[in-house]
Design a protein around this nucleic acid. Structure first.
Lengths: 298, 298
DNA sequence: GTATATTGTGAAGCTCACCTTAAGGATTCG
DNA sequence: CGAATCCTTAAGGTGAGCTTCACAATATAC
């Protein structure tokens, strides 16, 4: 019978793009991956990988096998969920990936509440940007992802992933104090600080600017929203800031009326399909939602 | 992640009824099975087995896990089928279980034809009665089963099994020469030879007799239809005989007109769901169907 | 009631599957 | 052409999982 471990290795090679990258992510030597995949090809009698340049690429048979591996892993996921549901009380080790700005403010409170309510539950938090977190979720390195989601910018891979919206967070435009009551011309010549090029947040922000009638000059890029906020306070750039971050830092500048104020991002909770009903994951989702609703203390 | 090998062990314990029986079928020591299942319980944190008498019984969680294991194995089966389909020419080792009377007459011709057409294909034949063959198919000890099927007596487990009718075989009643043109009273006092009590064939035969208006006296039981035939020839008993067996042995007594002549059994080809399209299995099914159609040569 | 067979558990030890390390060939890039 | 990157192969170590053996618990035979 096919060895599930080898199938997972092949799948990771597809996800990561090379044997070396797959080995690094799974904490194996690259040699181990090469050997196991060679054995997989030998036992199936089918060529699954072909050399392309100095890397490898999956053949059609390899791609098919990865799709089938996804189906197998979904079935395994359901089995594990059913087992975990045998205990009604959340327990065990659960690894969660979250985006930085959320982790800093919300997650500590959520983790405290979880630790108090469920002493058997061991939640481990990892910080990754949304794209990396999604790959880690699919490759089963984490069990859940908490990230933000901007309207009109769907995550690239939703296949086999279940998404729950935990809360909505208004996002408003902020201008330096000297530019208050700005005209469209001011917006057009303003320097902006945004999240890194290519991220969902940056794509969304540019869309909002274009809808308003100007193309933003993205002078600074950072995934740290507190940096954005300080840049606004210093009068160096304009930015879009979620209320969550503004509350965290007690920003002294009010939002501008020159940009739409009805925009909002969602905070979403992602798990692999089939795992939604696992008590531990449901409890984590609830705890984070609760932490998002409750006012900041301290 | 759950270890598929351990899940298969648990499943086999359910199929066979005890750890010892499961170990015997899978060629392990009973201790190995006990140890692995103890580890499975430990790693899942769920009680899967409970002692009942000197044996074990699956808990509700264990039963659920076995159902989930079936789903996982189905997905693995599809993956293996897709891999095998990557070669268009049938190849590899395929294990087939067949019922005795079919094996003797049909299978040698079918295997010869397969060996000639597909030198890469290695078909291995095992003789088992229909019930045992079905368990071995489900537990993946064999890849296909060829058996007979009588109307009104469906096999007990069809879940996850795909059935194809290869041919229909008329079954006629035969009386000893001295009883030809028998009355209903003669049928009622006649001794019969049938297949073993409880088998599908025996249940069907008794049904036919009852529909004709009498309860057969089952004096002799054997799964060997050639034995049935010799008993008829010797004038010792009446029997139902498929044409396939009659042709094989060139019976000298004609079928009786005192019993219905429109009855027939089916010769069916069974594979696990998902494996139908595997070229090797399709080729074997075709070859057996061909052998069933072609006239007997020596 | 005692003996015997059957089934599951646990300890001790062995073996081989799988991993790591190391060396080498192939390809890309500066 | 040298450096960097990636895959393959050989050699060797180690631990997961197996077998064997001993034993406890229960059912069955006499």
């Amino acid at each position: 019978m096919l060895d599930l471990h080898r199938l997972v290795l092949l799948r990771e090679v597809k996800l990561r793009g090379s044997m070396t990258a797959a080995a690094r992510e799974l904490s194996y030597s690259h040699s181990a991956v090469s050997q196991q995949l060679a054995l997989l090809e030998k036992e199936t009698g089918v060529t699954l990988l072909e050399k392309v340049g100095r890397g490898v690429k999956l053949t059609a048979a390899g791609e098919t096998l990865v799709r089938n591996t996804d189906a197998i892993l979904s079935a395994v996921e359901r089995a594990e969920t059913d087992l975990a549901s045998a205990h009604s009380v959340p327990h065990g080790v659960v690894t969660v990936a979250a985006f930085a700005s959320i982790s800093r403010t919300i997650m500590p409170r959520a983790l405290s509440a979880l630790a108090e309510s469920y002493p058997e539950l061991d939640v481990r938090l990892q910080l990754y940007d949304p794209e990396a977190a999604m790959i880690r979720l699919v490759s089963r390195q984490v069990d859940a992802v908490i990230t933000d989601s901007y309207p009109g910018t769907e995550p690239p891979t939703t296949e086999g992933i279940t998404q729950t919206v935990l809360s909505e967070d208004p996002v408003r435009g902020y201008l330096p104090a000297w530019a208050e009551g700005a005209s469209l011309e001011t917006l057009r010549t303003m320097k902006w600080v945004m999240e890194p090029r290519g991220s969902a947040a940056a794509r969304w922000a540019v869309q909002v600017c274009r809808a308003r009638g100007f193309e933003p000059i993205v002078a600074h890029e950072s995934s740290d929203l507190l940096f954005h906020l300080r840049m606004v306070e210093e009068g160096l750039a304009a930015a879009f800031l979620p209320d969550m971050v503004v509350r965290e830092a007690a920003l002294t500048v009010p939002p501008t009326a020159a940009l739409p104020t009805d925009q909002r991002r969602s905070v979403v909770f992602l798990v692999r399909a089939g795992a939604e009903s696992r008590p531990a994951l449901a409890a984590i989702g609830d705890a984070v939602a609760q932490a998002l609703r409750s006012p900041k203390d301290i």
